[in-house]
Amino acid sequence: MTAPVDELDPVRAELLRAARAAAEATLDHARTGAADTLLAARTAAETVLAQARRLGEADGAEEADRERVRAAQEAWETELVVRAEVYAALRAEVRRGVRRALAREGVAARSHLADVARAALGPEAEITASAQGGVTAETPGRRVDLSADALADGALDRLGVRAETLWGPP
């Protein structure tokens, strides 16, 4: 499933750099938006927690203990949901970025990608332009997906743990 693509490396590198740059830029941008969303969620959670804590101090009962745990758990669940939204927003943003980048490059990008696909599948590969940009290529039994969204998802995966800077240390 590997393919010799050495001769195309500069082309490929350029495309990947564009996708990665789009992801990075989006990450920076998304970070600002995420900060607001998270701040709101966390403030709400803090209020609930503080309330639970006061309740505990007031009667010191076991029930209050449980209440506190429940509040903390709910706050954490909210936080996770918000993080997931922020992450989904990032993905959408990266996809848009890559589509834009490919559209900017136009025919040149498409032909570069087609070259990459042929290098992987052979010269007889049938190349299809993808609706959102990029191409897919096919031979009997094999397929390569170099569509804009696939490139974007790959770039996002490579961001890896750095995407967690979106929500910072919990």
């Binding site: 499933m1 590997t2 393919a3 490929r12 290098a119 992987a120 397929r143 997906d145 490579r158």
Partner: peptide, 29 residues
């Protein structure tokens, strides 16, 4: 894709129970 391009195989020869047999592969470990 900092490494090689990911190739998907579409030649499914057989499906049985939880197993799928894919044909035409190369270099799969």
């Amino acid at each position: 894709m900092s490494g090689p391009v990911e190739v998907e195989y579409t030649g499914v020869r057989e499906l049985r129970g939880p197993l799928v047999v894919v044909e035409g592969v190369s270099g799969v470990g």
